[in-house]
Design a protein around this nucleic acid. Structure first.
Lengths: 391, 391
DNA sequence: GAAACTTTGTTAGTAACCTTAACTAACAAA
DNA sequence: TTTGTTAGTTAAGGTTACTAACAAAGTTTC
């Protein structure tokens, strides 16, 4: 027999109403009880009693009187963003970035750790513990006031199990990350793919604020994408969504097990850099697309060709995603940032030639911080107003 | 200021509980009040009173006694699937198919109308009215007992507005279909893209039953896809999701405004048929891929090449979708049905070479009826247990 | 400057809904 | 016939939010 969720009870409706009040309070600061009644469509007495309860619990503060609108002055309220904290951590090659944030998602302190032996999973887990200690000390937060830790990892992560199921670049396949860290720290841990978290970061705090459906495309050593659908990050049936490095773009060739996908084999930063080495007299460590563009601008024909070919195929990747998902917005990140205005324009032109519904295009706005912002927000989303659910 | 939805009231919890009971009752027939209490996690008295209420309203029936499990015999209940009806209608080229169904989604009667002037939008709308009359007469349903009409149309539909925003094949661009039919018939109308409805049909009644994330791929005159994410049909920001005919697969060429996309220009049934004309001595009207395969099997080299090339590029389309969305299941439909076991196998092989997370592959199982099934279910989903929400 | 509104917030009583506890009904097993 | 179990009902009680009325603290009007 097939059952169902959520039996409607009197507790449930209270929880919903508390949640609604908190949400309104998070979205607009300096709001009175009367305002909340209007916003939530609850009666004034009901709002008053719930608010008083939450003031007792330390979730809300009274911050003084407001100006009269022709009657008694309102008592302004504020969500107590400092009531709890969250920690975000992201592995990036040989460094680990950590940050502690309040319930608003505002970063309080950052910390960075260089991993001496980048490929050692156990060591990496230990440095999370180390970084956490530093952040707690600096911020003065007690561990009991942390909601949890969000952790960004390369490869395909199994969020539910808390393990890594596919990680060609680090070799941490099968590592039970969540369990180990939770045991070591006694805090809830959420793991996720790094590109997913960057997507979440840009969606909540960057170029994607206010949109409901967007795609985030990242071109780096590999090529990946994150997908937000109906305001939710979509992770796929096996948490392998957005693995667009495996799209069939460019020459196919033979694929070796455990290797990169066709698209990234042809047009990742590493691949383009490799091609450039055959053409350019000198290849530095900066943005490869800028280096190629510089030579192209100076009239080097082969450079111009490589540039055009690369842009065209990146545009093809974008067009494929746009035609399939019809997002409102497409955020370009990683090496795509360096395309510049002309590059962006040529991609827009291609899209309008190719697909019927062209999404808005924006460059990512958070830079290096996208991943850690996302990690922070992944915890905030996993525990929606934590305290409200204690009822 | 930013407000919020759903003020939690005592009415809401009753509605939720009624809804839960109805859902359990829809999913399993022949269930007692005691069973429902277990399924919904409500108390037995609560279930009893809600059930009695709904029996009064005609939503539920008692269907007799069950067998004792060591005590008093249970009174078995059944959802009254005949309480309301829904109508589905689908335009397909020059014919319109209609069907009337009960709340279970089981088709009661079908009807088909040939459109004398297929491209005349007004005429088409009139035939919906005509078909509805026939179905009501045959089934004995009164119009007041219909929840609504689901209507499948080619092109990009604006579901909210009820208009058509892009329809190169019919030219019905901008037609306010919903408004006109609602005014003419006095019934709620839901319009949707035809491929979306086929997807919904297969998801609810065909190859996709039980899955939560799937992609439906249709190859016909055009190429399109439907996307189900987290048990919801995803329509895209501008309702243009799944327009995979515009993926960049095969030679690009110049795209003319209002024309087909690159993928479908190269590998739709019409495109492949065109290529076949240059190769095969005779091209009939049946499945084009079967015709090519027959010549290939008889040793004709060019036919074999065309077959392989076509399969390969269809597989590329599938791989692109799989790598981006990581669905559990991919349903193949339209001309893809005729690939047969060998074709399916070769596509599976390609996929496992190309992408890291290979979805299950199935052939569509509803054939011609997928669209109309979907139309029916689109109404059922838009009015979830209609009567329950009257509370 | 007093009277008449207005807005904010609280108090008291009520209605809606679910739950628990206890009961009747109906049946199986021994 | 007794004992135990399952199904369904009745009655009392607990939460929760709502309405109505009121107090507090302003502004506006004449």
């Amino acid at each position: 027999m097939i059952g169902r969720a959520q039996p409607g009870s009197t507790k449930l409706i209270k929880r919903m109403n508390r949640e609604n009040i908190l949400l309104s309070l998070k979205a607009n600061t300096g709001v009175s009880r009367a305002d909340l009644a209007k916003l939530t469509e609850l009666s004034r007495p009901c709002v008053s009693s719930l608010v008083d309860e939450m003031i007792q619990e330390g979730l809300i503060h009274e911050i003084g009187m407001g100006t009269s609108k022709g009657g008694r002055k309102p008592i302004l309220l504020e969500y107590n963003f400092a009531a709890f904290g969250v920690v975000g951590a992201v592995f990036e090659g040989s460094t680990m970035q950590l940050a502690i944030a309040d319930l608003k998602g505002d970063t309080l302190y950052r910390h960075q750790i260089s991993l001496s032996s980048p490929m050692d999973g156990e060591k990496a887990i230990e440095s999370v513990a180390e970084g956490l200690k530093v952040l707690l000390a600096r911020s003065g937060f007690d561990k009991s006031r942390l909601l949890g830790i969000g952790l960004g990892l390369p490869g395909i992560t199994r969020r539910r199990d808390g393990t890594i199921s596919y990680a060609p670049s680090t070799g941490w396949m099968g590592l039970p990350v969540r369990k180990e860290i939770e045991e070591k720290l006694g805090l809830p841990v959420i793991i996720d793919n790094d590109v997913n978290l960057m997507t979440l970061g840009e969606y909540r705090r960057g170029a994607g604020i206010g949109y409901s459906n967007l795609v985030y495309m990242y071109v780096g050593t590999g090529i990946g994408a994150g997908i937000v659908i109906d305001k939710q990050l979509y992770r796929g049936a096996r948490e392998a969504s957005g693995e667009i490095g495996y799209m069939m773009i460019g020459p196919i060739g033979k694929r070796l097990q455990g290797e990169f996908g066709v698209f990234e084999k042809n047009y990742s930063v590493s691949a383009v850099r490799e091609k450039a080495r055959y053409i350019l007299p000198y290849v530095g460590s900066g943005s490869i697309i800028r280096q190629i563009a510089d030579y192209a601008d100076r009239g080097m024909k082969e450079a111009r060709q490589l540039l055009d070919d690369t842009c065209k195929h990146w545009a093809i990747g974008i067009a494929n995603m746009a035609s399939m998902l019809d997002p409102e917005l497409l955020i370009l990140s990683g090496e795509l940032i360096h395309l510049g205005e002309e590059g962006l324009h040529s991609i827009k032109k291609s899209l309008s030639d190719w697909v019927p519904s062209v999404p808005e295009l924006k460059l990512a706005s958070l830079g290096e911080h996208a991943g850690i912002m996302g990690a922070i927000h992944s915890v905030l989303e996993a525990f929606p107003s934590e305290a409200a659910s204690r009822v």
